[in-house]
């Protein structure tokens, strides 16, 4: 699981440009599902199990995209301005490195560093430096980089005890949970429902991939797998989750009020199978479940999250035990015929 996580979190995949991640996942789940397709927006849709008389069609979504940035202007000196792809926060930017698809590495700087380093800055006061040398006018040579090129943070996976640290844990760790759950189901052969594992696109820019894939699949139940901000960072008041305390079962966030019977189903299964869990309320935010639950006539939906410190930074930190708990809970749902719903 660690090798897969390392591979996926280090992959390149800003919103709308998930093709590299998709290719890796396709390779990984080949043989783990009964059917696989890619839709118009680029969602990878994998079916496991079949619809029989009374069982459920369950959509389980994890998003492949990660926050990124896109070049919006190249100034006369050859510095790049950018727009954010997803929630990019100014305090996380200075000195960070970003990677373009063609392999170019950029450095983030901001206007008048020595005059402004103690001030609160806005995203549009930062720029990317991709200089490969000087051009004929003494400005930066920007190589092949042009307006409209996307980039993501560049950072390697680290392991520290049971903690895993990387960029884009949000939400490649959700993809890992989905893949490992698929593997578990393959091994056990116990699939009680028609389960669509959907590796979605463009979650970070407004849950767009989940919107179209949920419409096409028209599931009975929706589940999003995502990270959730941990409440055990210093003075965090938005939520109460803790690293290492188990899978976070969502009660409510900014995008969904989870129907009580869905969260109860998850909690019951966790207790029955001895899977550590915690209840989660998040004051803001939203996941793919936000889109799924409002599809057509409504889809009762929930969220299983991996608590994560420093979300939307290059050091998103999760605990391996929580990831395992999420895998177990997803597999338990997919293989339990009577979900009590």
């Amino acid at each position: 699981m660690k090798a897969l996580t390392k591979k996926l979190v280090e992959a390149w995949g800003p919103p709308g440009y998930e093709h590299h991640v998709r290719a890796m996942i396709e390779e990984e789940v080949e043989g783990l599902c009964d059917e696989m397709r890619v839709d118009t927006l680029g969602n990878l849709i994998c079916r496991v199990g079949e619809k029989t008389g009374s069982n459920k069609r369950i959509m389980i979504a994890a998003h492949m995209d990660e926050i990124g940035l896109m070049v919006s202007h190249i100034d006369r000196k050859g510095y790049l301005r950018f727009e954010s792809l997803g929630g990019l926060f100014a305090p996380t930017l200075m000195g960070n490195r970003v990677l373009f698809e063609n392999g170019t590495v950029g450095t983030l700087g901001f206007d008048d560093f020595w005059g402004n380093y103690s001030k609160a800055l806005k995203n549009n006061e930062f720029y990317i430096d991709v200089s490969m040398g000087s051009d004929e006018n003494g400005g930066n040579d920007v190589g092949d980089i042009k307006v409209g090129d996307p980039a993501v943070f560049l950072r390697e996976f680290e392991e520290r005890g049971s903690r895993w640290i990387a960029k884009s844990m949000d939400d490649r760790i959700g993809c890992v949970v989905a893949i490992e759950a698929m593997r578990k189901l393959k091994d056990s052969g116990k699939v009680a429902h028609e389960v669509y594992f959907v590796f979605t696109v463009q979650e970070e820019v407004g849950v767009r991939g989940a919107t179209t894939s949920a419409f096409a699949i028209d599931p009975d139940i929706g589940i999003a797998l995502d990270v959730t901000p941990a409440g055990d960072e210093i003075k965090t008041t938005a939520t109460d989750t803790r690293l290492g305390k188990g899978a976070a079962v969502k009660i409510k966030d900014g995008g969904i009020v989870v129907p009580p019977e869905i969260s109860a189903m998850m909690i019951n299964l966790a207790e029955k199978n001895g899977i550590p869990y915690q209840r989660e309320i998040l004051r803001f935010g939203g996941t793919d479940a936000k889109a799924i639950h409002l599809t057509r006539s409504g889809v009762p939906s929930g969220v299983i999250s991996v608590p994560c410190r420093y979300v939307h930074t290059v050091s998103e930190t999760v605990d391996r035990a929580d990831v395992e708990a999420c895998v177990d809970l997803v597999a338990a749902i997919a293989s339990t015929a009577d979900l009590g719903l």
């Binding site: 839709d39 118009t40 927006l41 767009r208 919107t211 179209t212 419409f215 096409a216």
Partner: peptide, 16 residues
């Protein structure tokens, strides 16, 4: 860049 009618069209139905 705000948005255009494409903002809703491209995610309507199963995507366009």
């Amino acid at each position: 860049a705000g948005g255009t009618d494409a903002g809703i069209i491209h995610i309507s139905g199963a995507g366009v």
